[in-house]
């Protein structure tokens, strides 16, 4: 269980329950330069514990900022290094890591950015950060082998059962439905498209997936994001195709299927589960 500890200077720090008072003081002082060095510290060689603690505190904060820089490189490029590091420093004091695994740190960073008033003039920043977090998640997701063409042909030969069939999606797949052009902005910062051609205010849906070794960031056609979400929620192939066709007049089942097959998003066709 997590508890929120309010500090007199106004910051909120989440700490693990079960810490004693000394650990709470030490942990909060570690992330806040305005707090004094914890009492009763001593250095092995007799040097000043206040200075030693300041060095340690600096290393902790720098390593966490570096980890966020590694995970959110495009977010950083969009606001510049100096601004990003200042923003990251504030985030770290509000949402310190809950796990020792640095590769998982930052899943609350996009939401923090969305509510961070100094970046309200860059409204698409939070969605770009969401895309980068999905990228990291896909990177670390379990491996799975995309369904091969022969298996799809096998499913096709069982045509009567197709409407009730359930498509199992790749464990690394996520869909970002952005009100901004988060995918194109991200792609422009990979050098794959020209930033001058991107209108940041055009809504986009993006599939983020790692079928084999590399993470793919794929722009989706109208309705495809909803199509993937419904399948992921366990809706049958027939229900999903119908619901999306009704909701999105531009939805094209064939090209959408081609896209999700091409990206390796389907790992199994499950029959017999519907009554």
């Amino acid at each position: 269980m997590r508890i929120d500890v309010s500090r007199p200077h106004g910051g909120h720090i989440s700490l693990q329950a079960g810490m004693n008072n000394y650990e709470v003081d030490f942990t909060s002082a570690l992330l806040d330069t305005e707090q004094p060095c914890p009492a009763n510290l001593s250095a092995w060689n007799g040097s000043d514990p206040v200075k030693r603690f300041a060095v340690y505190r600096n290393n902790v904060v720098s390593s966490l900022i570096d980890a966020l820089e590694d995970t959110f490189p495009v977010t950083r490029e969009l606001v510049g290094d100096e601004f990003f590091r200042a923003m990251a420093r504030i985030f770290i004091t509000r949402v310190p890591p809950k796990s020792p695994v640095l590769a998982e740190y930052g899943d609350e960073f996009p939401e923090f950015i969305a509510n961070f008033s100094p970046v309200q003039s860059v409204p698409y920043l939070a969605d770009v950060a969401r895309l980068e977090m999905f990228y990291l998640t896909a990177y670390h997701a379990a491996d799975a082998t995309p369904l091969d063409e022969a298996s799809f042909r096998g499913a096709l030969s069982n045509a009567d059962a197709l409407p009730s069939a359930r498509l199992q999606l790749h464990p690394s797949a996520s869909v970002l439905r952005s009100t901004y052009a988060a995918g194109s902005l991200w792609a422009a910062h990979q050098g794959t498209i020209d930033l001058a051609t991107v209108d940041p205010y055009l809504a986009e849906e993006i599939l983020i997936i790692r079928p084999f070794w590399e993470v793919l960031v794929v722009p989706l056609r109208p309705g495809a994001g909803r199509f993937i979400e419904l399948l992921a929620n366990g809706a049958s192939f027939g229900e999903t195709a119908l619901a999306v066709s009704v909701a999105f007049p531009d939805f094209d089942l064939t090209t959408t299927l081609a896209d999700i097959i091409r990206t390796g998003a389907v790992v199994a066709f499950n029959f017999n589960e519907a009554l």
Binding site: A155, A159, G238, T255, A258
Partner: peptide
């Protein structure tokens, strides 16, 4: 959506991919 429609779309998608 009929089984036929789904099968046709899937078949066409496989040709495209």
């Amino acid at each position: 959506i009929s089984a036929m429609t789904l099968a046709a779309a899937l078949g066409a998608a496989l040709t495209m991919t």
